[in-house]
């Protein structure tokens, strides 16, 4: 809208930095509670601060998912389905077939969890396709009208570019992995997985010597699951967003570059649709696989 005006005010690096900073609510250095005015202030807030923008969009999209699916579930019919029910049933059937093929055990939580992950993460990722400055500019207008400094109104709209969001979900998955591993295999069985694999021996003394080696080999594998799960989603979407930001900068570099930028943006957005879908799918599939692994009692290496 007012790129010329911005060009005077913002350098490219400032523009990028502005786009990558969350609107953080927490305890300010002077002891009062409020929104951080820059990324340094946000960093100083420590753990007890909330990224209002990504958290808000995450909740909004989760609620959107729930209300769309709930409205269909309310008037669901086994007759010929129409419009929204078709779409919802398509999603559920897709998720259900994935769950059935990868999770051969009885657990009523896995299906709904996979569906929640798939659709919710898909919605979060899809926020990347909204014009990169549109929502932040609207937020800036609202913020300024409320008396805020225009440079301090940060607004990140893609929740999955916030590691808090992705790692939060991955941690829940990790807790479920631990929970189902322990309930299915017992504490002893679960501990045996780390101590008796991959090296095992029938000789008790040799086995005792193997235990620390096994622990070193197996424990990182366990903790790598949630970290890789969360960071994979975060990394893919973060990279995608940065490319959108860079393309947006190109718009301010003359008519020729603006034309090129338009072309690149279309191509990247088309390609990004694939990433949006794929990352949601990967998050869901890996969750199902991890659940399935924690149910596997007779694991032999």
């Amino acid at each position: 809208m007012s790129s010329a005006e911005h060009a005077e005010v913002l350098t490219s690096s400032e523009y990028i930095k502005h786009h990558l900073t969350n609107l953080t609510y927490g305890k300010l250095p002077d002891g009062t509670w409020g929104f951080a005015h820059n990324s340094d202030e946000a960093a100083q807030m420590g753990f007890w601060a909330v990224n209002v923008d990504t958290m808000g969009w995450s909740l909004f999209l989760g609620a959107l998912f729930f209300f769309i699916f709930r409205s269909v579930a309310k008037k669901v019919t086994s007759d010929v389905p129409t419009g929204a029910q078709n779409a919802v049933e398509f999603a559920i059937e897709f998720v259900d077939s994935n769950v059935k093929s990868m999770f051969p055990y009885k657990n009523k939580m896995i299906g709904p969890m996979a569906l929640t992950i798939f659709v919710w993460v898909f919605f979060m990722n899809a926020m990347d396709l909204i014009a990169i400055d549109l929502l932040p500019e609207i937020a800036k207008l609202v913020g300024v009208s409320l008396g805020a400094d225009p440079h301090a109104v940060f607004f990140k709209v893609v929740p999955s570019t916030d590691p808090n969001i992705t790692l939060g979900m991955a941690s829940c998955v990790f807790i479920l992995i631990l929970w189902y591993s322990i309930t299915q295999k017992g504490v002893i069985g679960f501990i045996k997985e780390f101590t008796l694999h991959p090296f095992s021996s029938s000789n008790p003394i040799v086995q005792t010597l193997f235990i620390p080696v096994n622990l070193v080999l197996e424990l990182p594998g366990l903790f790598a699951k949630p970290v890789s799960l969360g960071l994979r989603l975060f990394g893919n979407l973060y990279a995608g967003e940065i490319i959108f930001i860079l393309i947006a900068i190109l718009y301010g570099a003359g008519y020729l570059f603006a034309g090129v930028a338009g072309l690149i943006q279309i191509v990247w957005a088309l390609f990004h649709i694939l990433i949006i879908y794929l990352q949601a799918l990967i998050f869901m599939v890996l969750t199902i696989v991890y659940m399935s692994l924690s149910y596997q009692t007779d694991e032999q290496h």
Binding site: A49, P112, M169
Partner: peptide
């Protein structure tokens, strides 16, 4: 920065899974 958003998302995740499991 890693902050309480992390916990917020965990809680929201559990709630949405429960709602989906119960109503959808």
């Amino acid at each position: 920065n890693l902050n309480a958003t992390f916990i917020g998302q965990m809680v929201a995740f559990v709630i949405f899974i429960y709602l989906t499991h119960r109503f959808v």
